[in-house]
Computed example of a mutant assay.
Amino acid sequence: MIIFILLVVSYLLGAIPAGLWVGQLFFKKNLHDYGSGNTGTTNTFRILGVKAGIAVFTFDLLKGTLATLLPVLFHVHGLSPLIFGLMAVIGHTFSIFDHFKGGKAVATSGGVILGFTPLFLVYLLLIFFVVLWLFSMISLSSVVAALAALVGILIFPSFGFILPSYDLLFSLIVIVLAIIIIYRHKSNLIRIKNHTESLVPFGLNLSHQQKK
């Protein structure tokens, strides 16, 4: 019973639409009506500003971490912490508090990895920020980081680097998270192809997107 309760709590924790609620409470704006219409970190930065974006990113990240740590905090055994983290990502992406809409799962997925293997997250963040500087797009950086995660789970255990050994469940969870992230960015990928994707105000913009 406790496992079931914690799974539900993990989903509900992940389902908290921080961007949506911050926009409505403090800015009188519904993020669904602005920008990409998404309630995640990127659209929050774009529409509500840096402070709101940082707050929402931090919350979305840590709710994934907290969900992953719930079984540890409550001394629950028999089910991997990764499953609880995955429930938070599902909650974030399909929120019961937002008509089953949600974010693109990047920050919350990062929180899950932070709770399970922090060094792997450091590797992904390095990839993310390098791509962000080169191409000036959060969407592309997120997709490339997701692909880098797939490469990492395949290669790193062979060398005992970051991941000491192959972990089937961790690999499966990373594959699921990467698929969710890439799928949720399908419209961004189309805009990137058409050179119309939104840019951050720094970096080299090597793909020559049209600045808005």
Rank of each mutant, 00 (worst) to 15 (best):
S165N: 11
K212E: 14
L154N: 13
M137V: 03
L132D: 03
I181E: 00
K104R: 12
V72I: 12
T42F: 08
G78I: 05
K28S: 08
M137S: 15
L119G: 06
L154I: 09
L20G: 01
A105S: 15
T93M: 08
S171I: 04
G23F: 08
I16C: 10
L61T: 15
V56A: 05
H32A: 14
F161R: 04
L169E: 15
L147A: 14
I83C: 06
P17W: 04
A105Q: 01
H32W: 07
K104I: 07
S158F: 06
G85D: 04
V174G: 00
F26T: 06
N205W: 11
P81M: 13
I96T: 07
I153F: 05
V112P: 00
M137L: 11
S10L: 03
L177A: 03
L86K: 00
K104W: 06
S10H: 08
F97R: 10
R184G: 05
A105I: 02
F57I: 04
L140N: 05
N30K: 03
H208R: 14
L114A: 07
V106F: 11
G23L: 07
G85S: 05
A145R: 02
K212Y: 07
K63T: 05
I192R: 07
H92A: 06
V106L: 10
I3T: 14
K28F: 04
G111P: 10
A105P: 01
D60K: 04
H195N: 13
Y166A: 15
F74V: 12
G23C: 04
G64W: 00
V174L: 05
G115T: 07
K211L: 10
N194W: 03
T65P: 04
K186D: 09
V130C: 03
I153D: 00
K101G: 15
G102Q: 02
P118W: 03
I138L: 09
R184A: 11
L125T: 01
F94G: 05
Y123M: 13
L163W: 01
I5P: 02
F57V: 04
L6H: 01
I155S: 11
L79Q: 09
L62I: 12
I179M: 13
I179W: 10
H99K: 15
S207P: 03
I162R: 04
D98K: 09
D167Q: 15
F59G: 05
A107H: 02
L82V: 01
V151F: 15
V144N: 10
G111N: 04
M137A: 05
F57Y: 10
G64R: 00
A15K: 01
N205P: 12
I2Q: 15
F129Q: 14
P201H: 06
A18S: 13
T108I: 09
P201D: 07
M1K: 14
R46V: 07
H75E: 14
L177S: 01
L62A: 05
A149M: 13
Q209L: 12
P17E: 05
A145H: 08
V106Y: 04
K63N: 08
